[in-house]
């Protein structure tokens, strides 16, 4: 498959702070890619570099094989939705959306009837028909966001970039917009890159997720691939809740306190290691048959499930254990734990 956007070794330095330390990523036409990471991981910096709003200190970004440096902002054809939306407050919704079309040089500018028609179509697409005459200050946050999206789509962008598209919205609106955006992408097929710090958002929306941490690309892959096969401890712990067990790997077994707690036959890690186990992958068992046993200290409701906190001798942190259909253990009860699935990384 062809590559639309090729990022090679992108680096960016702000004074003494290295925001990006050589990130490479190839994005194919029609993909929906999430740049996921905590704040300060370099994800917004990377987005601004793709947009051409900032300049590389090293590396290269190419569009359809053409170096970005050779393209003016207009020729890049980037549709950018800013985190603050950056709507022009003195222009109506209609004029905001038409801005990019009217800004074209005269010979490339569509006739005004054509501009009107495209604006109407776009507003229908983002379900804002009837609000053409409003000013941004007269819209809700979610509506503003969709105006920003329509404005970015108006220039028929090569790539659509979204900076924390749901960041400024409240929880209910976020959920609605998320589903709607997914649907919109599958209908229009725009190559899209969006930045988020919310794992759920990235996993739910994206075709592929690129995880950034301290200016480096930690892992890139489909949501299933990165969730089920995290490449680094950071990815593993960032993508969901985990319990970390310091273990010793010997002879295909991970040992905790001379007890074999997990069969580590498929890994090449040897010696001191960290075992990452998600709460849903810990199952209650009889204490006498289980190598991993402890005392239930708390049982709490955690959304749809209940969660037990189990204290294990020799571990400073209690283990979180999700309890599904089985009968919840009572406080103070001694339980055994079976690890169904875990990720093993050599100790740092």
């Amino acid at each position: 498959m062809s590559v639309l956007l090729q990022i090679d070794n992108a680096a960016r330095q702000f004074g003494s702070f290295a925001a990006l330390k050589g990130v490479s990523l190839a994005i194919e036409p029609g993909e929906l890619v999430a740049l996921l990471g905590p704040s300060g991981s370099g994800k917004t910096t990377l987005l601004r570099l793709i947009a051409g709003l900032d300049f590389l200190d090293g590396g290269r970004i190419a569009f359809d094989g053409v170096d970005g440096n050779a393209l003016s902002l207009r020729d890049r054809r980037i549709g950018m939705v800013f985190q603050s939306y950056a709507l022009f407050r003195h222009l109506t919704v209609r004029d905001n959306v038409a801005f990019g079309l009217r800004a074209r040089p005269r010979q490339e500018r569509p006739p005004s009837a054509e501009i009107d028609r495209r604006v109407r179509d776009l507003l229908a697409l983002v379900q804002l028909d009837g609000l053409e005459g409003r000013f941004p200050s007269e819209l809700s946050g979610g509506q503003r966001q969709r105006v920003a999206l329509a404005r970015a789509l108006a220039i028929e962008p090569r790539v659509l970039l979204l900076d924390e598209p749901f960041g400024a919205l409240d929880a209910k609106v976020r959920k609605d917009l998320r589903a709607w955006l997914r649907d919109l992408h599958s209908r229009t097929g725009h190559t899209t890159v969006f930045v988020t710090h919310d794992q759920d958002e990235a996993l739910e929306l994206a075709d592929r997720v690129a995880i950034l941490h301290q200016g480096r690309l930690e892992q890139v892959g489909t949501p299933d691939a990165i969730y089920d096969h995290p490449a680094t401890p950071f990815v593993c712990s960032f993508l969901g809740e985990t319990n970390r067990l310091p273990v010793e790997v010997q002879g295909g077994q991970a040992w905790l306190d001379d007890q074999p707690v997990y069969a580590a036959s498929t890994t090449n890690v040897i010696g001191p290691a960290d075992l990452y186990v998600r709460p849903q992958h810990l199952k209650l068992d009889r204490p006498d048959v289980s190598p991993l046993a402890g005392v239930v200290e708390f049982v709490r409701r955690h959304g749809a499930i209940r969660r037990a906190e189990v204290a294990i001798r020799g571990l400073s942190k209690r283990l979180d254990v999700d309890i599904g259909g089985e009968i919840a253990p009572s406080h103070g009860e001694r339980v055994g734990l079976r690890i169904q699935k875990a990720h093993l990384f050599a100790a740092a």
Binding site: A18, L53, F55, L56, D57, G58
Partner: peptide, 19 residues
């Protein structure tokens, strides 16, 4: 990784800007 800075800080006293 070493970071070469060829184009970016064209002049030392001013940050390059798209504006």
């Amino acid at each position: 990784m070493s970071i070469a800075s060829p184009a970016n800080h064209g002049s030392a006293w001013r940050e390059r800007s798209i504006v």
